[in-house]
C-alpha cells in the first residue's frame, strides 16, 4: 500500500450519466487500486446520485455504473464518503444506498480533504 502522502482521494461531483466524468473517475480509482495506491472516493454534489440503487440505465441507453461501483470492495476500495448535506439537499435516504458510504458533516469533509496527500477532482 502506498505511503500516507501518496494516498489518493478521488472527488467526484458528476451524476452517474453526466457525460463520462463519473466513469472516468471510477476507472482511475480502479486503476489506482490495482497499483496498490490507497484510494478513497468522496461523492459530492450530484455524484451522490451514483449511489441510488435500482437505477435503470438502459432506459436512457446508458451503461450502468452500479456493477463497477459494487466491485469497489473487491479492489479493497473501502474509503467511501459523502457529505450528509449533499444527500439531504437531494432528498436521498442514507439508509438506502448502493454502497456503504460514510456520511460526513461539513467540518468532517474539510478534515477528510486535509488528510489525503493527493486529491483529484472529477
Amino acid at each position: 500500500m502506498s505511503t500516507p502522502d501518496k494516498q489518493l482521494l478521488v472527488v467526484v461531483g458528476a451524476g452517474p450519466h453526466n457525460a463520462t466524468r463519473a466513469r472516468d473517475a471510477l476507472d482511475l480509482v480502479l486503476t489506482s487500486a490495482a497499483f496498490e495506491i490507497g484510494v478513497g472516493i468522496l461523492f459530492r454534489d450530484d455524484a451522490v446520485y451514483q449511489l441510488l440503487p435500482q437505477q435503470q440505465a438502459d432506459a436512457i441507453d446508458a451503461k450502468s455504473l452500479a456493477a463497477n461501483l459494487q466491485a469497489l470492495p473487491l479492489y479493497d476500495v473501502e474509503q467511501l464518503y459523502a457529505p450528509r448535506s449533499a444527500l439531504e439537499a437531494r432528498g436521498l435516504d442514507p439508509d438506502n444506498l448502493l454502497l456503504p458510504v460514510q456520511l460526513l458533516d461539513d467540518n468532517a469533509t474539510a478534515a477528510l480533504l486535509h488528510s489525503y496527500g493527493q486529491i483529484l477532482s472529477f
Binding site: 489518493l8 476507472d27 482511475l28 486503476t31 490495482a34 497499483f35 495506491i37 493527493q118 483529484l120
Partner: peptide, 18 residues
C-alpha cells in the same frame, strides 16, 4: 497509453497537478 501511466505519475512524482 492506459490510466496506469496516471497512477504511476501519482506515485512517482512529488506533485501531480490537475
Amino acid at each position: 497509453s492506459g490510466l496506469g501511466q496516471l497512477a504511476d505519475a501519482a506515485l512517482n512524482s512529488d506533485r501531480l497537478i490537475t
